[in-house]
Design a protein around this nucleic acid. Structure first.
Length: 317
DNA sequence: TCGTGTCAAGATCTT
DNA sequence: AAGATCTTGACACGA
């Protein structure tokens, strides 16, 4: 089976590899003129997009096909201070250039709206904000002219003291989403509330791909062994290549935190479980050291018998 | 230049 | 009911 590896948002292997520059609302509102406020946001966005393009070229050059785009490309895009700003129009050519690289090099890009984006909240304004944030992500993908294969990873959300009802609420809102958003959503198990089994069942019901996060499964599961459900998890992807998230626990009181690097022995344990599925898949490496962690994992994998290195970010096992 | 408090957003635990 | 904590990377300010 072929396994491609990728990393999240920031390239540490090149200088100025963070397409994450932003400002705070407090600082922005110190600027009197609305037009000057917007200029500042524009300047930051422009810089981020230029960085993003460099990062994409770097990824392509290193055969890294799997990549997560930061949610902070356009600073404060969905905050009221930026209301009415047509960032896609302003940066049409920059966004197209990014999309062009993605398509030319067959990169697999996704985004992961962060934990404020919650569809199953009982609070209407929270769901409204989540929809606005999803819309923002879809706007960017559409401006890049990327199809529904550019996905948005979401968690189920909060428990609100009643898991069954909270899952039910997720399903209802999910079905009401416009196609343009719904077709991009994939759902990940989290480290506290919704186990891999919970998400698998949900994903089967709503016919949506599931992203297995192996580390989250270690933090939060119901005593179910991964090998028993992995084939079903992969099956939620149909003919698409499944993707999983992989990280190692930081050696601290909080086991849920991500470590700098990936422990190769843990990775091998997963490979051996996955081998029984006999299916290609992609791995998003979630480590503090980002692309550097990916490269150092690859170096270690070279030493393992049975692992054949295809290129800097792909193996056969 | 370096260190530190703060940041749009929610949920949940603690007091 | 209010406040702290979670978690992340980076800004912005002050030393």
């Amino acid at each position: 089976m072929r396994i491609r590896l990728g990393y999240v948002a920031i390239a540490l292997g090149i200088s100025q590899g963070s397409p994450n520059k932003t400002t705070t609302v407090l600082n922005l509102t110190k600027i009197k003129d609305k037009k000057d406020q917007l200029s500042k946001l524009r300047r930051l966005a422009e810089e981020n997009l230029a960085t993003q393009l460099r990062v994409m070229r770097y990824n392509a050059a290193h055969h890294i096909q799997v990549f997560r785009i930061t949610s902070q490309l356009i600073p404060l895009a969905t905050h009221p201070v930026a209301f009415g700003w047509d960032y896609c129009e302003d940066f049409r050519s920059e966004l197209l250039a990014i999309g062009d690289i993605v398509k030319r090099h067959e990169l697999r890009v996704s985004a992961h709206p962060d934990h404020f984006t919650i569809l199953n909240s009982p609070l209407e304004h929270v769901v409204e904000a989540a929809l606005a944030d999803l819309r923002y992500h879809v706007n960017l993908f559409e401006a890049m002219e990327l199809g529904a294969e550019a996905k948005l990873v979401l968690h189920v959300g909060g428990l609100y003291k009643d898991k069954a009802q909270s899952i039910e609420r997720f399903k209802v809102i999910f079905q009401q989403l416009p196609d343009t958003i719904r077709e991009r959503i994939i759902i990940e198990n989290d480290d506290k509330s919704y186990t891999a089994k919970d998400v698998l069942t949900l994903c089967q019901e709503i016919k949506t791909p599931m992203v297995l996060d192996v580390h989250h499964d270690h933090c939060c599961n119901e005593g179910i062994h991964l090998e028993d459900i992995l084939p079903e998890i992969f099956a939620t992807w149909g003919s698409q290549i499944p993707k999983i998230h992989f990280s190692s626990a930081r050696e601290s009181a909080n086991k849920r935190a991500h470590a700098d690097h990936i422990a190769v022995d843990e990775f091998l344990i997963f490979l051996n479980i996955a081998k029984k599925c006999n299916r290609d898949f992609d791995v998003m490496i979630e480590a503090k050291e980002k692309d550097l962690a990916l490269f150092s994992l690859m170096e270690k994998l070279k030493e393992i018998s049975g692992v054949k290195v295809i290129n800097e970010a792909e193996i056969e096992y």
